[in-house]
């Protein structure tokens, strides 16, 4: 049996069980009826020229339809309720960026720590994964949590969970992605909160030592993003101090609403920022001209992630 390592796994098992028993009983009902009829009404027992002329039975047929309608609506609503829990992450989860590439998983923590095909998360804490793909579609599948999410190039997708079982849980790629699709595997390690904190602290300590040697290399995501912000010339049009230049100021914008040219409002999330960088014309901020160039091809996926981390770190 598959371990149940998160609350979503638990809900899955209950609903799966309900549908399973319903299906089994329906199947047994249909097959018993068939077998019974075949035996009871076999040609050896029944005159082929004296079978009754039965056209149907509207009441019976309608009750089958209505009965089944009620059942499938229960399944639907129950499934939707559980699905909403899978969708809505609680406040302030631990965020980890995950990049799918043919054929490995790259995990990036907000402190800049990168792991390949390995992820460490604290038990009983909400964790939110932010996915992007460097090439084709992949799918991040954690059977022990009964969760999966496609990882799509050009689009951010997310998945959150709260692990309830210490230990190592396999992660598989579930969307066909070529030669080594079946080898695109990772391990998700669930450790206690304390172990997780020490695990990160040790690394950060080691990093600060290294920073003195090679600052660039180990810059945290936000720091790296800050570097890019000047390097890539954003400062030509944007400030982070609240002043307007050619473009709007970018401090404290993340997670807030923006008013667009057509008067509509839009929530600034990761996808919005990404779109602002890749297709700036798609959603125009009210009061500004379409002067922002596209950074398609000039900013890699992990650089976009760094810029986003930087924008997130800026307060008003």
């Amino acid at each position: 049996m598959l371990p149940q390592a998160s609350s979503s796994a638990h809900s899955f098992e209950i609903l799966f069980g309900v549908i399973f028993w319903f299906s089994l009983i329906s199947f047994l009902a249909v097959s018993t009826a068939i077998v019974f009829f075949v035996i009871k009404f076999h040609r050896t027992r029944r005159d082929p020229f004296k079978t009754p002329f039965i056209h149907g039975h509207t009441v019976l047929e309608t009750s089958v339809a209505v009965g089944l309608f009620v059942v499938v609506m229960i399944f639907f609503i129950w499934g939707w309720a559980d699905y909403k829990k899978i969708l809505n992450a609680p406040q302030d989860p631990l965020e980890i960026n995950v990049i799918g590439k043919q054929w490995l998983w790259e995990m990036e923590y907000s402190n800049g720590r990168k792991l390949i095909n390995e992820m460490v998360v604290p038990k009983d804490e909400p964790v939110k994964l932010l996915f992007s793909s460097a090439d084709v579609i992949h799918s991040f599948f954690i059977p022990n949590f009964r969760l999966k999410q496609d990882v799509v190039p050009g689009l951010y997708t997310t998945l959150w969970f709260q692990a309830s079982l210490l230990g190592e849980h396999p992660v598989l790629c579930a969307e066909y992605c070529g030669s080594a699709h079946s080898k695109m595997l990772a391990t998700l390690k669930v450790v206690s909160k304390e172990d997780y904190d020490t695990w990160q602290k040790q690394w950060e300590k080691a990093k600060t030592q290294k920073v003195e040697e090679a600052q660039e290399d180990a810059a945290s995501m936000a720091e790296q993003g800050k570097g890019l912000f000047t390097q890539k010339g954003c400062t030509a049009c944007h400030t982070v101090t609240g002043q307007k230049l050619i473009g709007p100021p970018l401090n404290g914008i993340f997670g807030k609403e923006v008013e667009l040219q057509d008067g509509s409002k839009h929530f600034r999330d990761e996808n919005y920022i990404r779109e602002s960088l890749m297709t700036p014309g798609a959603k125009m901020v009210k009061g500004f001209a379409p002067l922002m160039p596209t950074f398609q091809g000039t900013l890699s996926d992990s650089e976009v992630n760094a810029v986003i981390a930087y924008l997130k770190s800026l307060k008003e």
Binding site: S8, S11, F12, L15, F16, I19, F20, F22, S23, V72, F75, F76, W78, G79, W80, A81, D82, Y83, K85, I86, R146, L147, K148
Partner: peptide, 10 residues
């Protein structure tokens, strides 16, 4: 039916 049910299909 299992696959049509959202949370189960995940």
């Amino acid at each position: 039916l299992f696959l049509a049910t959202l949370s189960v299909d995940v």
